[in-house]
Simulated scan of single mutants.
Amino acid sequence: MSTAAPESPALSAAELHAAATVVDGSTVIELSEAHLDRIRRGGVTAVNHTVTRPYAGTVEALREVNRCRRWIDAHADRVLLATTVADIQRAKAEGREAVILGPQDTEMIGIDLDLLGTFHDLGVRILQLTYQRQNLLGAGCGEKVDPGLTEKGRTFVEAMNELGILVDVSHCGQRTGLDAMEVSATPVVVTHSFCDAISPHIRAKNDDFLRVLGQQGGVMGITTLSGFLYYPEDRGKRPDLKRFVEHLSRVVEVAGIDHVAIATDYDETLTEALKGPDWGKLLGNWKWDERRAIGMDDAGDFPNFTEALLAGGFSPEDITKILGGNWLRVFGQAWK
């Protein structure tokens, strides 16, 4: 008489989180020991780091990339530069952090494809086409009119494909983002955004966009900034990770489980004293200590994502995809 094999015991949230390769799809890291401590505490393996300031000129951007590279070199026992998926896998195995260089703008490059190659040589593997405003490639989401990718923009995307740089359209206008998906031979990503159907905003992506993103094979990372996950019916209510799961679930419903991930969109270098005049315009008039969703104050709180996803009914397999597996897939498809 045969007997059924015993079921494997379910992993706890802590065990599931520890086993996963956890990726933050968009952040600005502080080049410091404190950052490394937060990353280790949160069990994060890889981060997409906004290595250059948006609208930076070429020389300034090169200096910022160099500064980050030198910091990585100086902390080689805890950090490595990620230019391949194998680098991220190695970082996981060795307990180090893999830093992906991902500028959120192309204005330091313009349309100079030689410069694009130079930034690739320096380690850039994710590149956002526009940041809020119109540039030589296309329109940002802050423009009232979005005519889509320019002809130079189309050539630029094709060159990114050839080099092996992942195309990011987070801050692009909708038409520009859709055009990029039409032109790109590899999946396009929205490294950090949220759902317009739940929290309407110029930075959010609507369902029509998400459907195309899923069909094209891309991924959208869901942010956990309070001003983006807001409740339209109660704008003064600070969102929590349950609200994050609602946005994530909407992407799953529209595009599928393989097309959503995590991206905190946290700037670790921003201090309350440095808040600029656009703070309220972009993120809402939140108190400084409430600017991030409840349960995710910094990278050290990343295990709370896993607990929230389990509470939201996601399976361990799907949670592993959301924590980092979906990012790894598109990285592998785009990078060479």
Rank of each mutant, 00 (worst) to 15 (best):
A13P: 06
E15G: 04
T21E: 09
T21I: 15
T21Y: 00
T27C: 13
V28I: 13
I29L: 15
I29D: 13
R40N: 10
G43H: 03
T50P: 07
T52V: 14
T52K: 03
Y55V: 07
A56Q: 01
T58K: 07
E60A: 08
N66Q: 12
R67E: 15
R69V: 09
W71A: 03
I72C: 00
D73W: 00
A74C: 03
A74T: 10
L80V: 07
A86D: 15
Q89G: 15
A91T: 13
K92R: 15
A98I: 08
L101R: 04
G102N: 02
G102E: 05
Q104G: 10
T106L: 07
I109E: 11
I109M: 07
D112F: 01
V124E: 06
Q132P: 02
N135Y: 08
G142E: 00
G142R: 00
E143L: 03
E143T: 07
G148A: 11
T150D: 09
K152M: 10
V157I: 15
V157R: 02
G164C: 07
G173I: 00
R175V: 15
T176K: 00
L178W: 01
A180L: 06
A185D: 15
P187S: 03
H192D: 10
S199Q: 07
S199G: 09
N206K: 14
F209M: 06
L213E: 02
Q216C: 07
G217M: 04
G217Y: 02
G218H: 11
T224P: 00
S226G: 06
S226Y: 00
R235A: 05
P239L: 09
L241H: 04
R243T: 14
H247M: 02
L248F: 01
T264R: 03
D267F: 14
T271H: 08
K275M: 14
K281F: 11
L282Y: 05
W286K: 10
W286G: 12
D289F: 04
E290P: 02
R291I: 08
R291A: 14
M296C: 04
M296K: 01
P303A: 08
N304L: 07
F305N: 05
L310H: 01
S315P: 02
E317D: 15
D318W: 00
K321E: 12
G324W: 08
G324T: 14
G324H: 11
N326M: 09
L328Y: 14
G332Y: 06
A334L: 03
A334T: 10
W335N: 03
W335H: 04
K336Q: 13
